[in-house]
């Protein structure tokens, strides 16, 4: 445990970068593969929505670099991931099988997060340490802080990361959660995926300053803004925050500047509030070709390898789609299950 206030200056100073955790080429390639897989799945689900086979989709397109990088910067299997509805690439990078994800989109039996009671990837998947309890924006922030409190109490060396949007940052829950986490130096990483929109509301109507990370100082924790289309930037920032958290130095607020490439959800039409010129700019910041170019430049990716990665992703998505379509809907048999602990069940220790 550190004493006194967190040393914000240290984190921001270039000196701190000397020992910084660097992203290596094999990991970058692994990230690329996951990004292709996530994107392929994402595009397919959007299409399935248009075909009436998926009721609702909130796409991660444009957010993937930041999402995937955080998973690599943490310890899957040990650390906990408090995701929100736009975090498909987190779920993909954590290794949840596509067939299971597809059951969620199609609301079919055997869906692992909620038994198809909730929207896709909502609920929890304890096996992968994913918690995404609800559609309610902001509520998971203090919940993640509570998980970090528990981790600290149990001296587990576990880190909790909580993902949320720029809109969520306006909630009282966000403020209250961050404040508590900073006071108690809890091992939590606040990861704001700032795409500058909350549905149609632009950032300028959300906050009067230009960055969410600017708030961190007011809570007494480090805050930094990174380019969320760059895996290295997001990876290094998260790895550093995780290391600090694990060492007992408390929380960090990371704001990743990302792009929302599609409308808010499949139910939304963004033409009313985003100009087509703006969307052209968004395309230029697409993290997938950015990472592809980076990998090509360092000689890690070539045309053949890329084709193999894309082909495998397509096959995986095809199989998941077939699997999902063939799967039955849940029966109503368990409809009343899990309102309370099972009758006669022993209280948990």
């Amino acid at each position: 445990m550190g004493d006194g206030n967190p040393d914000i200056a240290t984190l921001k100073s270039p000196a701190n970068k000397v020992g910084a955790i660097r992203l290596d080429a094999p990991r970058m390639l692994a990230m690329y593969t996951q990004m292709v897989r996530s994107r392929t799945l994402d595009e397919r689900v959007w299409l399935l929505n248009r075909q009436g086979k998926v009721a609702l989709m909130s796409s991660a397109q444009g957010h993937e670099a930041a999402q995937i990088a955080t998973v690599h910067a943490l310890r899957p299997g040990q650390d906990w991931f408090y995701t929100y509805y736009r975090d498909l690439a987190v779920v993909v990078a954590l290794g949840v099988p596509f067939k299971e994800i597809m059951l969620g989109y199609m609301a079919k039996a055997g869906e692992p997060f909620s038994g198809a009671r909730q929207f896709p990837c909502h609920g929890a998947y304890p096996k992968y340490h994913i918690v995404n309890p609800s559609n309610v924006v902001g509520t998971r922030i203090p919940q993640a802080v509570g998980a970090a409190l528990a981790a600290k109490m149990r001296r587990e060396g576990t880190v909790v990361i909580v993902y949320f949007g720029d809109g969520a940052a306006s909630t009282g829950d966000c403020h209250e959660g961050m404040n508590f986490a900073a006071i108690h130096k809890l091992p939590v990483v606040f990861f704001c995926e700032n795409n500058r929109y909350a549905i149609s509301v632009p950032l300028s109507k959300q906050i009067a300053v230009s960055n969410v990370a600017a708030r961190a100082e007011g809570y007494g924790m480090p805050g930094l803004t990174v380019d969320g289309t760059d895996v290295a930037a997001a990876y290094e920032a998260t790895a550093e925050a995780a290391a600090k958290a694990r060492a007992g130095h408390g929380p960090t607020l990371i704001e990743a500047m990302v792009e929302r490439a599609l409308p808010h959800t499949s139910d939304d039409d963004d033409r009313k509030y985003r100009s087509r010129e703006e969307m052209e700019e968004v395309k230029r910041r697409d993290p997938l070709p950015i990472l592809k170019r980076q990998l090509e430049a360092i000689g890690v990716l070539n045309v053949e390898l890329d084709a193999r990665i894309c082909e495998a992703a397509k096959r995986e998505v095809d199989e998941a789609t077939e699997f999902g379509e063939a799967a039955p809907y849940p029966t109503t048999e368990g409809f009343y299950d899990h309102v309370y602990a099972p009758q006669g069940g022993a209280p948990s220790p």
Binding site: P330, T332, Y336, V339
Partner: peptide
């Protein structure tokens, strides 16, 4: 409505 905490998503459950 049935005394469960909220309305589930999947069509047969919602219908129920």
């Amino acid at each position: 409505g049935p005394d469960v905490p909220a309305m589930p998503f999947s069509p047969p459950l919602e219908e129920m």
